[in-house]
Design a protein around this nucleic acid. Structure first.
Length: 285
DNA sequence: ACTATTTCCTGGATGC
DNA sequence: TGCATCCAGGAAATAG
């Protein structure tokens, strides 16, 4: 499956901030204004963070006023049919975990294995949640607040403060959703490469310059990935879900042993807190 | 208050 | 060919 410089993650990436952004935009285009007529929730308790009855009660007879991203969460603003979009009665929160997908399809489409939720829409279509590995989560809440700061809007000084005094490796700090919301394994590695910082460095040991570079590199790589993902939204076909939206050329992630694009040194792979981490031993210090 | 480790879960890849 | 084993990783739970 790996094709050229792309890893298999290019075909079915674990959704991080840019992927979730792309998915939320695609969903917003397709289901905004639609009415949820009924809800089916499968498989016992697993993917449900709220009780099934609560989810059903919150969704049924609500109109989807908006779909957007917050961290790695997809937020559906729900309003009662006759009400305006201004004051959502509730929010449906979807976390895709590693393998979660939201499909908009015709009711005739065969139910995929591991389908955990089906929303029947007034337009005649269905919105389905499929998640083989079941790390994804569904919840309803009045008003969602992300645990950490948005990497795309945090100020440089707030960004620096996030890491102040932290002894944990910078890689782990980047992955900590209570600090920053939305950064996953791929973009953490890619941002550290751009900042020329090794993933094992203690977060607190980064200089002001390195923190500036890390902030800039993180924003750049996230925006680039959103841009590339966004360009393929127009290719969405109802039955296909969110396929093929990811086209970023990784510089380190999944490139163990391959030459650094900057200096040719073989990229190293190490494990930090159980997560694979990739870096250039020459460019990153 | 932090930090590190373990656990959940399944499909795909690998090895014998 | 088939079966066992390993590995991927987001985030919550647990332990220190």
């Amino acid at each position: 499956m790996p094709v050229g410089e792309f890893t298999c993650a290019a075909i079915l990436p674990v959704p991080e901030l840019p992927e979730v952004e792309t998915i939320a935009r695609g969903l917003a285009k397709r289901v905004t204004g639609d009415l949820i007529e009924s809800v089916w929730l499968g498989s016992k308790p697993e993917p449900l963070k709220s009780p099934a009855a609560d989810i059903e009660a919150a969704l049924v007879s609500k109109k989807i006023a908006d779909v957007r991203r917050s961290g790695k969460h997809i937020v559906f603003d729900l309003v009662r049919n006759e009400e305006s979009a201004q004051n959502p009665a509730a929010q449906w929160i979807v976390h895709l975990g590693m393998t979660g997908r939201l499909l908009v399809c015709s009711p005739d489409t065969g139910l995929e294995k591991h389908t955990h939720a089906v929303l029947r829409l007034a337009s005649g279509r269905e919105l389905r949640f499929v998640d083989p590995r079941r790390f994804g989560r569904l919840a309803v809440i009045e008003k969602f607040t992300p645990p950490g700061a948005e990497p795309l809007s945090i100020s440089p000084s707030d960004f620096a403060n996030v890491f102040r005094g932290r002894k944990t490796p910078i890689k782990s700090a980047l992955l900590n959703q209570k600090l920053l919301s939305g950064v996953g394994n791929i973009y953490a590695d890619e941002a550290l490469y751009r900042a020329k910082v090794r993933p094992r460095r203690r977060a607190a040991s980064l200089s002001a310059d390195e923190l500036r570079l890390l902030h800039k590199g993180l924003k750049q790589v996230l925006q680039e990935a959103i841009r590339l993902g966004g360009s393929s939204i127009s290719d969405y076909v109802d039955s296909e879900g969110q396929e093929g939206f990811f086209q970023l050329k990784h510089r380190v992630y999944g490139r163990e042993g391959k030459p650094c694009r900057r200096c040719g040194t073989p990229i190293k792979r190490i494990v930090i807190a159980g997560r694979s981490s990739h870096y250039c031993p020459k460019c990153q210090r």
